[in-house]
Simulated scan of single mutants.
Amino acid sequence: MYVLGVSSNIKNLKDASVEFVSELFYKLFKEMYDSIPKYDLIPETSAERWFREMLLHEYSRCAAEQSSLTEMVMKSLGEKRISSLPQRE
């Protein structure tokens, strides 16, 4: 079954749930990192910023894959029936 072109396949649903929860964790981890006081003794390079961003994304993805929050989001999205939107088989 398709709802506006999005498959209700369980794998796609799990991938979307992991991606959603991963973004939540990323924002949380970034806020936590930004709350640490910074000092100008050793200036930060753009490569270090890039590496830190990639590292935070990877941490958040790993945390989302192991989190029960992902299962709750997946269950919540899987139970939704959108009857007012056009559906196609």
Rank of each mutant, 00 (worst) to 15 (best):
1 M>N: 07
1 M>Q: 07
2 Y>C: 02
3 V>F: 09
5 G>D: 13
5 G>C: 09
9 N>M: 04
11 K>N: 14
12 N>W: 01
14 K>G: 05
14 K>I: 05
15 D>L: 05
16 A>M: 11
19 E>V: 07
23 E>D: 11
24 L>P: 04
24 L>G: 12
26 Y>Q: 09
28 L>P: 01
28 L>M: 05
31 E>F: 04
31 E>K: 08
32 M>R: 12
32 M>V: 05
33 Y>Q: 13
35 S>Y: 06
35 S>D: 12
36 I>G: 00
41 L>K: 06
42 I>D: 14
42 I>S: 11
43 P>H: 00
44 E>Y: 07
45 T>E: 06
46 S>A: 11
49 R>Q: 03
49 R>P: 04
50 W>F: 06
50 W>T: 02
50 W>Q: 09
52 R>N: 08
55 L>M: 10
57 H>P: 04
58 E>G: 02
61 R>Q: 12
61 R>S: 11
63 A>R: 09
64 A>S: 11
65 E>W: 02
66 Q>K: 15
66 Q>M: 09
68 S>E: 14
69 L>H: 02
72 M>R: 14
73 V>P: 08
74 M>I: 03
75 K>G: 08
75 K>A: 12
77 L>P: 05
77 L>Q: 07
78 G>W: 05
79 E>Q: 13
81 R>D: 11
82 I>H: 08
84 S>K: 04
86 P>L: 03
87 Q>C: 06
88 R>F: 03
